[in-house]
Amino acid sequence: MIKKENFVLSIVKFAFREGAALTTPQASTEITAKTLAVVEAWREAEGPLLPILHGVQEEFGYIPNEALPVIANALNLSRADVYGVMSFYHDFRERPAGRHVLKLCQAESCQAMGSDAVAEKLRKLLGIDFNETAKDGSVTLEPVYCLGLCACSPSAMLDGEVIGRLDEGKVNEIVAEVRA
């Protein structure tokens, strides 16, 4: 087993070589250090890539490009491997989201309860389409296919908080909250 210090050092060197050109050295150092801390936490785990990507996204709000070589080197993968995994999953973002993230369920149960009309109204009120972020950076609107709240459709999730039986009143509350 590699000693922890040596391991960290080798990754830092590697990351600088791979990622430094893309950003300022200072930002890159910070991303590298924080990514390494996440990687370290999962070093002993089996199949650690998804938890690491979740951890990095929790840290930065997205997966910075500079984090990929750090993860790749630590797990002995190619950068393409890590990118391939990251880009496969809907949850992982390559760019920061808005200050609020609104996920609106668009699956069958919610369709049966008028989710199309709710989506239409929210798109209009927020001035954005699905998978877009408002110009002022206030909110990102995303479709989601089932939140398991099918007995209180239509449903949504705002910053991790669940909302059921969306109606006009609740839609207006959501808009007011993200604009606040």
Binding site: G47, P48, L50, P51, H90, D91
Partner: peptide, 20 residues
């Protein structure tokens, strides 16, 4: 935790996902 891929409910893709 999964990461928002419906297909991972299929058992073999779930296993690949668990493997990272």
């Amino acid at each position: 935790m999964g990461a928002g891929a419906y297909v991972c409910g299929e058992e073999t893709s779930l296993l690949d996902s668990l493997e990272g």
